[in-house]
Amino acid sequence: MVRRSQRKQEEPDLGVLSSRTLFSLQRELFTKLSEQGHPEVRPRHGAVLAYLDEEGSRATDLAAQSGQHKQVIGTLVDELVALGYVERQPDPADRRAKLIVPTAKGLDHMAKSDAVLAEMEAAHAKAVGEEAYAAFKRVFTLVVRRQTGS
Rank of each mutant, 00 (worst) to 15 (best):
A123E: 15
T31F: 04
Q65A: 15
Q68K: 05
A104V: 13
K112D: 05
R44H: 02
G46C: 03
A132R: 14
V48N: 01
L49P: 02
Y85A: 08
V86L: 05
I73F: 07
E40V: 09
A64Y: 02
L117I: 13
L49G: 01
P39S: 08
Q9S: 09
L99Q: 03
R88S: 12
E79V: 07
G56I: 10
L62E: 00
L25D: 09
A125I: 08
A115G: 08
Q26S: 02
R88I: 04
V144L: 11
G106R: 00
R138G: 11
P12I: 07
E79F: 01
V48H: 05
V128S: 09
D61F: 07
R27H: 14
A135Q: 15
G46L: 09
T148Y: 02
A127Y: 12
R146C: 01
L142H: 05
P102E: 08
D91A: 06
V77E: 05
V48D: 04
K105I: 07
H45I: 08
V101W: 04
V48F: 12
V143T: 04
V48K: 01
A104C: 09
P43M: 12
P12L: 12
M1R: 11
G37E: 04
L76T: 04
F30K: 10
D78W: 07
Q36E: 14
Q147V: 05
V144W: 06
G106H: 09
A64F: 00
A127D: 04
P102A: 03
P43S: 09
K98F: 11
F30H: 15
P39I: 03
D61N: 14
S19Y: 08
E87D: 12
L99K: 04
P92N: 02
V2A: 07
A122G: 10
Y51E: 08
P12T: 08
M1A: 13
S18T: 15
E119H: 07
L29G: 14
K98L: 15
V143M: 02
L17T: 06
R7F: 08
V77Y: 05
L52P: 03
L83V: 01
V143R: 11
G106F: 13
A97E: 11
T21D: 01
R3Q: 03
G74P: 00
Q26W: 10
M1Y: 06
I100R: 05
P12Y: 07
K32F: 04
K112P: 04
Y85C: 09
R42C: 02
V143K: 03
E54L: 13
L33F: 10
P43R: 09
K70A: 10
K126D: 09
V139Y: 00
F140Q: 02
G67M: 00
A97M: 10
K98H: 11
H124C: 13
D91V: 03
A118H: 07
Q147L: 13
